[in-house]
Nucleic acid binder design. Structure first.
Length: 230
DNA sequence: GCCAACGTTGGC
DNA sequence: GCCAACGTTGGC
């Protein structure tokens, strides 16, 4: 297991959620279908979880600039991932249920954008690949780790992580401001980024992208920046 | 450094 | 189960 890495997400978060799974989805919904439906005979797939939606692409946020949390630098930019052995690292420290659940849905081989957050210039810096599917995040049991979670028990670990491998930098940096312009435009006139999680669920550190969103964003690499020089 | 948005906690 | 208080995220 690769060295340390920093995943955005919550800091201390000693949260204690329910015991295990499912947490509400941001927008509240989810609960609607609720509880126990007794399917008599027809198993009508619940309208609620179209079974884990088949997301195929992701966006993972991490901070590329130094910032100290309890004396520990949380900096972990794409260059830091690239510098690890085999250019691979574990995405530990995620302490938000929605983000965790998305990680649990990741499949080996899927691609994700590496997004730089909480920094001078936020945006997409490169591409990474999921190389190991969700497994126990050991940092939840490490009292010295900033992401230690006293409420998580060894026999029922609360948090998961995946391993990711550096693929390449995007041909040019895709800034948040540029993405936002497309988002606003698409929201007004229609277009692939109209519901992009980066804007509709801005605080999520692990986000899903539809193929349309992913393809559109990646396509920006070959276009001139929309934004007047930074 | 400010602060809006929003997730989490805990009283009731 | 509601909801106010609180804490965190992350852009600006």
């Amino acid at each position: 297991m690769p060295p340390k890495k920093k995943a955005r997400v919550s800091k201390t978060a000693s949260n204690s959620g329910k015991d295990d799974d499912q947490q509400p989805v941001a927008s509240g919904k989810t609960t609607s279908g609720g509880g126990k439906r007794k399917p008599a005979a027809s198993v009508e797939k619940s309208s609620e979880s179209p079974a884990s939606p088949h997301y195929c692409h992701w966006l993972l946020k991490s901070e590329p600039e130094s910032r100290f949390e309890n004396g520990v630098d949380v900096k972990f930019g794409i260059e830091d991932l690239k510098a690890l052995p085999n250019q691979t690292g574990c995405w530990d420290g995620v302490r938000n249920y929605q983000a965790r659940n998305f990680m649990r849905n990741m499949k080996e081989g899927q691609l994700a954008f590496f997004y730089h957050s909480n920094c001078k210039e936020p945006g997409i810096a490169g591409l990474i690949k999921i190389v190991k599917e969700a497994y126990v995040d050991h940092t939840q049991f490490d009292k010295k780790d900033i992401h230690y979670d006293a409420s998580s028990k060894a026999d029922n670990p609360k948090w998961s992580m995946v391993d990711v491998q550096y693929q390449r930098m995007t041909k040019r940096f895709l800034s948040l401001s540029e993405l936002k312009k497309y988002h606003l435009q698409h929201r007004a006139e229609g277009g692939p980024l109209k519901d992009m999680a980066l804007f509709t669920r801005a605080r999520l550190s692990v986000q899903p992208l539809t193929s349309e969103e992913f393809d559109f964003v990646l396509g920006l690499e070959d276009k001139e920046p929309l934004v007047p020089a930074v």
